[in-house]
């Protein structure tokens, strides 16, 4: 039994089928990286795992620690230990980052430590995500994720809109958490920068809603950088079973 088991999963947005028959497994303490071109269905898979509205599972099942979560509301999945970093989190006016942080944890010392490590002191009493820069948003997301002590972290392009310095700050804090808590992590990455910081064991390529090849994410990323996604798909050859 994996931490996350995606079984024969089909997902539609409205009438449009995006994913068909996807199988995927992430083990406890495993970092899994999903590569793929824009529009290949990567985000759809991540959002379906979280249970975000509008992404309907038309076939198959999602299991978390062996239990089906396919029909569960978002907050239940969150409470079970799944936490997501949005690519573009919405601004919530009048709701402070500090307020959410304290709802997620009553460990003031832990909050203080993460706020310091993620350099969020100056944003702590600001409205959540309102007028935050790309890097600020992602750091604030990471704070909330880590305070909820998840077993599985879903990262939807953590590098987008973030400069290298911020990626480095986030990467280190994230990696510490993953190692200490033996948490799993499911990352969508375009640039591959984040894999420099976290010990990613498995990589996978998604094109047009299908998964191809499982391999060492660093090797895969080099192939993609050098020869493109199609080449990566050919080179590793086998469609994932």
């Amino acid at each position: 039994m994996g931490l996350l088991d995606v079984k024969n999963l089909s997902v539609a947005i409205g009438n449009k089928q995006i994913l068909e028959g996807v199988d995927l497994e992430i083990d406890k303490a495993q970092v899994f990286v999903l590569f793929g071109p824009n529009g290949s269905g990567k985000s759809t898979l991540l959002k379906a795992v979280m249970g975000i509205g509008g992404y309907s599972v038309t076939k198959g099942d999602i299991l978390f620690e062996g239990r089906s979560i396919t029909g569960l509301p978002i907050e239940e999945r969150a409470r079970m230990g799944i936490s997501i970093m949005f690519q573009h989190p919405p601004g919530v006016r009048g709701v402070k980052l500090s307020q959410i942080a304290r709802m997620l944890s009553d460990d003031e010392e832990l909050i203080r430590r993460y706020v310091e490590e993620l350099n969020l002191g100056y944003l702590f009493d600001r409205d959540l995500n309102v007028d935050f820069s790309g890097g600020e948003m992602k750091r604030a997301e990471l704070l909330q994720i880590l305070l909820s002590r998840p077993k599985l972290i879903l990262l939807d392009e953590p590098e987008s809109g973030v400069d290298l310095e911020n990626i480095s700050i986030m990467g280190k804090v994230l990696n510490n958490y993953l190692v200490q808590e033996s948490a799993g992590c499911f990352v969508i990455s375009h640039t591959g920068y984040i894999i420099d910081y976290i010990n990613a064991q498995r990589g996978c390529l998604m094109i047009d809603g299908n998964l191809y090849c499982v391999g060492d994410p660093k090797v895969m990323f080099e192939t993609i950088k050098a020869s493109g996604y199609e080449k990566c798909k050919e080179c590793h050859g086998v469609r994932m079973e």
């Binding site: 975000i52 409470r79 919405p90 959410i100 709802m103 997620l104």
Partner: peptide
């Protein structure tokens, strides 16, 4: 906005 409700949902907060 539903987006905000769902966003808070991902933090374990019900609707």
């Amino acid at each position: 906005s539903n987006e905000e409700i769902e966003y808070l949902g991902t933090r374990g907060i019900n609707e």
